[in-house]
Design a binder for these strands. Sequence first.
DNA 1: CCAAAAGTGTTAACTTTACACCCATGT
DNA 2: ACATGGGTGTAAAGTTAACACTTTTGG
Lengths: 226, 226
Amino acid sequence: MTTLTLPPQAAQVGLAVDVAAFAMHGGELRVLLVQRGTLPHAQTWALPGGFVHEGEELHDAALRELREETTINLEPRHLEQFFTFGAVQRDPRGRIVSVAHMAVLPHGTVRVTSGGNTIGADWFPAHTPPPLAFDHADILTRALNRLRTRLEYAHLALEFLPETFTLPELQEVHEAILNRKLDKRNFRKRLLAQGVLLASGERRNGVGRPAQLYRRAKGVRVPTNL
Amino acid sequence: MTTLTLPPQAAQVGLAVDVAAFAMHGGELRVLLVQRGTLPHAQTWALPGGFVHEGEELHDAALRELREETTINLEPRHLEQFFTFGAVQRDPRGRIVSVAHMAVLPHGTVRVTSGGNTIGADWFPAHTPPPLAFDHADILTRALNRLRTRLEYAHLALEFLPETFTLPELQEVHEAILNRKLDKRNFRKRLLAQGVLLASGERRNGVGRPAQLYRRAKGVRVPTNL
DNA sequence: CCAAAAGTGTTAACTTTACACCCATGT
DNA sequence: ACATGGGTGTAAAGTTAACACTTTTGG
């Protein structure tokens, strides 16, 4: 471990990352939480997160924590830093600054099991989470705001879905994130006008008329920065 | 100095803040830079910044660095964290993570003199800065983006001006930030429709027809978060 | 009376919203 | 044949963008 010589008055801080990871489950937006196994806040649910390692990029630390603490079987489709929480008293162990990230996991049977210092991991309704450790409720609120903002510009909703999907499914994602209903005709008009969707074959659902399948048009990318 | 016990693999990092502080000078958007007096990057221009102190909030650290390094005679009207730069190799001294802030200083003869470890301080055109130390050019680019975004929602342009101002002055601020010309009539229509401006007396300029003076309407606040 | 900057409205294009019925399939 | 969910168009309201002349002052 290399030693960094800091000026005498510089604070010694712990640098952590926390991740608000979202996915769709049963037509609802869910957030991934872990149940803490150690003090402080043992038993309490929290966002997955932990300390950044030696020589490790922030982005990579966020990915690692997501994997270590939850054993996710899917890669995040989007991972983005959105705010740094550094209030002096936010952690009773001392000064710990957390670079908070927002992640989107693709559709699919996302299974989670606990790992690391956690005694559980599960998905919870993103808009109505259980009580959370530390300032994680604030972090989650801000993550939801960022997710909503990104929905407009970027085509982030597509990241929640498998490679091919139907327009009703895509609308469901938008509605779950915005937490309100959208008009079906206007939604379709808008999305198709953007030219980011490409029609393919048909799909037969269980019931009702089969929906047209779409995939993202070639060359459509989610902007990494803003 | 209290000691924080970190897990063995946790990185030891320095935590810093950097501030991109903007003001209007002569119809142009300028950014405040300091000339470094010490290695690395001695002589090079950089954003004001430095290490966070023991028990100091990030916001306060940003304010302090602004004051220490430049001796500004005005309080920032807006100060907002916008991104955290943590690339492993961004600073040759070791792992230093910087929480970058964007600040707006009000109009007026903003005088700066160097202080602390700097050998100079001055204002530079924000869209065409000199070569900058570390990754400060990236930080500045992102700060400008954030400033533009805030212009839409918030009434951040008002923070660049004195308490009373004219519509042409306000338009000048918008144009300087967006780096393009705006239509005078549409600009006025839009701003007045928002109901954030209140007319007061008249002002006589050097030349031409005197402009109406405005002040911000009571109860109009810049949202601190988003 | 001239130079300089402030102030003022209208129209066309575009965008957004509201709204109701028919269609294709499985059972 | 019926239940289920998918698919389609139009009109009104609102927003944005383009555009040129008159007014008020100082010199």
